[in-house]
Design a protein around this nucleic acid. Sequence first.
RNA 1: UGGGCCGUCGCCAAGUUGGUUAAGGCACUGGGUUUUGAUCCCAGCAUACCUAGGUUCGAAUCCUAGCGGCCCAGCCA
Length: 581
Amino acid sequence: MTDQAADTTTNNVVVSNFIRSRMDEDCANKTYSDTIATRFPPEPNGFLHFGHAKSIFLNFGLAQDYAAQCPKSHCNLRFDDTNPTKEETEYVDAIREDVAWLGFDTQGQALYASDYFERLYHCAEQLIQTGLAYVDSQDSESLRAKRGTLTEAGTNSPYRDRSIEENLDLFRRMRAGEFPDGAHILRAKIDMASPNMNMRDPAIYRIRHAHHHRTGDAWCIYPMYDFAHCVSDAIEGISHSLCTLEFADHRPLYEWFLGQLAELGEFKRPLPQQIEFSRLNLTYVVLSKRKLIQLVTGGHVDGWDDPRLPTLKGARRRGFTLQGFKLFADRIGISKSDSLIDYQVLEDCMREDLNERAERRVAVLDPIKLILSNFPENHAEPCLAPNHPHHPDLGKREIQLTRELWIEREDFMIEPSKGFFRLTPGKEVRLRYGYIVKCTGFDVNDNGQITCVYAEYDPTTKSGTPGSEARKVKGNIHWLSCAHSVPAEIRLYDRLFNSPNPGGRQAGDAPEQTRDFLDDLNPNAKHIQIGRVEPALAQCQRESCYQFERNGYFVADQFDHSTSKPVFNRTVTLRDTWSKN
RNA sequence: UGGGCCGUCGCCAAGUUGGUUAAGGCACUGGGUUUUGAUCCCAGCAUACCUAGGUUCGAAUCCUAGCGGCCCAGCCA
């Protein structure tokens, strides 16, 4: 790949959105002095996926952009690790790699909500001491029963009016490990009749005798998201806490906690503000953590970095590029409306980036032999092929033409269908960068399969020689010399699901029929075959991207490619307006 | 008659302190270039902003009433 064109994806005009509008205002008013501070707060309990990429570009991108006006702007990578039963270090490492891969250098700085456990605990005691939090000793069933429903108010807990002293004592003993899991929880005392379920005395702390990936066994009580997140934001001086729409109902609680703690002198105003935007929805893809896990553990894919998966690890292996993702993020924009982006948009972004940056090479994916019967044996004719049609400065390379060649099986048809203008008996076609050849015959085996095609070349028509352009032929096919090419494993990937809405309703479904998203799995999403490639391709570095002319964009596999066993994954095909009809 | 959010071209998405012919991108269509049926270039593409009323000289932008969609009842995030 070249990097001279790497900036072509960054010349996009910045489109305004409601978050930028807010930030513009806050910048102009110096609300947060000279800072726009955001954060990307993944929970380390799974791998990052395409949806996270949108959030990463949003949060890190905004901080980067606003640094021009507000020089102290920055974005923190913070692990939201408040639930020890679900989180693991391996995810932390994987997430850090993914963030770095998307181009955001956190200078080795990763922050953790767990670093704030002591401060969080202190804040909780402050709330207790002000009568704003209490220890509830009901079991989870009665807690649920008393919460009310969406249309009915909840009822107060019998423990709601415990004295401050008792609450403090109980909470301290919770921390000391005197109680088993579930014996008590600490709740905020707000309003059991609130129409917003989140305000009905939400839990702040729960007892979990579990080993935490960073704090070990130091704690047996852990803060809940609603409490930990806003306090972490305040501690870090986050100005704009961006999250997805489903957290909009939590905003009053976010503001309640921070407002109360500010009153208590724990935090200074201005406080961070939560702003919600709509999450990414993509056709032909599942992005829910639960479903992704099911695909991996159920053996439907080959692991978290399977190129068919919408994980960042999978995308990287597939050959998707960070520039392509950036293009995608810019293209889909940010708003609050529920959107469903066509998967093709993502593919197009990858094509657009790769078209500009990937050098061209020749590969024959599904080879059949072509013999030029009038071509001298034991002769190799060097043909010049440009490495990139738009960048002559990238030079040309030689491809050897010989009597026996490999061509693409689909470039030959005995009985041409309408509109087919590649090789067909009696017709001419140009061997790209070589000569015009005329098909003279073919062999078929007992199964009716074509085994060999014969043609005669016209020595006066070599590409690049004077007069070679005199004769125009419409067909132009790629080829590789049998003697001057090497075998390579070619992994052809396609969409993982057949349905734009995996597991969703489809036309013809009975009214009550429910479908499993696994039923929509595309069994042909992965196809491995042995093709032929230019010899030099075996020497390329892993993760090198190329356009295999007329075939698509391919990447040398991140793990399996080697000089002795070249392996290329198809990132995405070229646009094809012909097969589309 | 629980609460919150959303509804602008096939898909996204500006515009929403009311003011000429409703940005832009993608897709699509037509034309040109082309030794990738690729790329690239040019042109076209919402009398219309969920619907119905209303206010106004003037509304996608304000008001009223509807309709449709998403989210919330974890000691998950």
